[in-house]
Design a protein around this nucleic acid. Structure first.
Lengths: 120, 120
DNA sequence: TGCCATACCTTGCACGGCAAGGTATCTTCT
DNA sequence: AGAAGATACCTTGCCGTGCAAGGTATGGCA
């Protein structure tokens, strides 16, 4: 609040699941995730978020990783979602839907009067 | 993540605006806000969130307050939204819509295949 | 040789929600 | 009268997470 970074606060607890979501469609390496998240709207602003996060996800067993050594490119560390990761992701989708629904409801129900015909 | 309190993280940056939203329909006192938020879904779990938050909102000039002394009831401190508070609230609504939209898009676009017909 | 881009990673800060604890007053029950 | 509970206020200290800033290494290109 007040701070310029309203969205930074909103991101809390969301970036991890977003990464899981991306990984659920296929493996990626760190920088790639940064770029994709960056492109997906306001979901990320720095590498300093992603690498520690990937470590945490790894330690929690939600993702696994492997190095890909090519002799023509930088070595890359790819991450893959695990089954447990998929379970977490599903759970998040539920939590998120419920939470966002609650916020939307509150925001809508307190909105300036125009022609209310609220249900609920 | 991993922690039992996924929603706690989601609440970050949202509770303040929710309070502003409630206040935008009329003044309330602390405990009342706690109860209303509690009832509005998963938006709050403790008084320890609300009172410090109200202080911050007050210091930032987003709300004002006055004491209501009744000889038949506990003294209550009522909070009212200020014009600046309304501005903040509007801004939040935009930020939130955009952010939630980004999350929803990502979550939807990575969802299990059933019969994709993505636009965008 | 120097420089940029790509890739990895760490450190320390700041912020906000939360549990736990604390005070005071009024009512109700025994 | 004394205890218990409800209602109202408030503070303190912890913890997780995102972020800026900084740091390393290697390949390509001029």
């Amino acid at each position: 609040m007040v701070s310029s970074t309203t969205t930074t606060q909103l991101r809390r607890g969301v970036v991890g699941p977003c990464i899981l979501a991306l990984l659920s469609t296929g493996p990626r390496y760190g920088l790639q995730l940064v770029k994709e998240l960056d492109r997906s709207g306001q979901l990320l602003s720095s590498q300093g978020t992603v690498y520690p996060l990937l470590n945490r996800l790894h330690e929690s067993g939600l993702v696994s990783s492997y190095w890909e050594m090519s002799d023509s490119e930088r070595p890359r560390r790819y991450y893959e979602i695990t089954n447990e990761g998929r379970r977490e992701l599903d759970e998040f989708r539920n939590d998120w839907a419920e939470f966002a629904g609650a916020v939307n409801t509150l925001m809508a129900s307190t909105k300036a009067p125009s022609s209310e015909s609220e249900s609920r």
